[in-house]
Design a protein around this nucleic acid. Sequence first.
DNA 1: TAGGAACCGGAGTTCAGGTTCATCTTATGG
DNA 2: CCATAAGATGAACCTGAACTCCGGTTCCTA
Lengths: 188, 188
Amino acid sequence: MSAPERPLRADARRNRESVLDAAGELFAQRGDAVQMDEIAERARLGVGTLYRHFADKQALLAAIIGRRFEAMTALARAADETEDPWTAFETLLHGYLEAAQADAAFRFALLGPEEPRWSDIAAEKTDFAEITERVVRRAADAGRLRADFSAQDFTLITRGAMANMTGTGDWRRYVTLLLDGIRHRPGS
Amino acid sequence: MSAPERPLRADARRNRESVLDAAGELFAQRGDAVQMDEIAERARLGVGTLYRHFADKQALLAAIIGRRFEAMTALARAADETEDPWTAFETLLHGYLEAAQADAAFRFALLGPEEPRWSDIAAEKTDFAEITERVVRRAADAGRLRADFSAQDFTLITRGAMANMTGTGDWRRYVTLLLDGIRHRPGS
DNA sequence: TAGGAACCGGAGTTCAGGTTCATCTTATGG
DNA sequence: CCATAAGATGAACCTGAACTCCGGTTCCTA
């Protein structure tokens, strides 16, 4: 399958890192609206160098989003290690949203019309889905989440929150509403 | 201020309508990704004619979104005429979302990063905000919505639902979760 | 029903931004 | 320390899509 794969030359490895760092920061701030030239400039490299390491803009973006999904997976794994099921769920939910808040590229990717491409890529490379599934199930089984709550519902509410991160909306308030429900119940 | 404003020539008026219809339909399907040439073709007109009636693509899009906001306002007004406060609220919420579901341009506009430009335009030209405010307040005062529910919360949940209309998410399920809350309450 | 203002059409222009490639530079193994 | 393959560079190129422009057409009024 794969060729002998001689390791990258030292400068190449360094430059690759620079590109990833620069792109990560810029994409996080402004999504895919950033231009390749900007990334090159911030990385103090020529555009050509970006293209030596990544086939095109999409590939670079994919690398960045992949990174984020890895971080999310670590987060989920950590949450899953919490013993209390509800705390585990809340930790995951808040950690996920906090991270999403800091990363516009991630949000746009998951909210944009090209989904579900990204989730599929994430599923191939990480266990995020499985771990989330487990965390959700634990909370539901423990009777702390409505019994029919599923991992898909996690995606649903997560998308909703992210949609309220651009502009003036207060997404924390939104999460509160979701957790409690907006309809008044005389009992309880 | 305004010039004598001779009325449009018959063909011009007709063509303007064609443009609006074509653009409305295409924008609704695919958001602002549609090209001016496509709109012209569907309207059976030259591109030049589009530009005679609308300064640029943004202006055309604004006209379309304005139309939608007018429809939304009519909807809100109708809901406000329902006597039961909860029914009024539900009618507005579902009507709004059903309409949003059918109009990608509207969704993208409200979810995109250029918000709150659109809401401001809407506020200038329609009473949507005021009427919604009233409907929400009525439901809250009647004790059918959590007491601290505000018109901003309407925007919040509405955005969340629209974010789940692209792709595979089931936004009706999402609304259910919001209305009921996802946390299990032993009491009630 | 003629004159002319208003309007239309769509090939061509412009421009922004992604991508290439001929040439120069540098790391590395011997 | 050299030879050389790997890597870097950025001006030039290409593409696609918004927009312009002017010769031809149509409506309207007197």
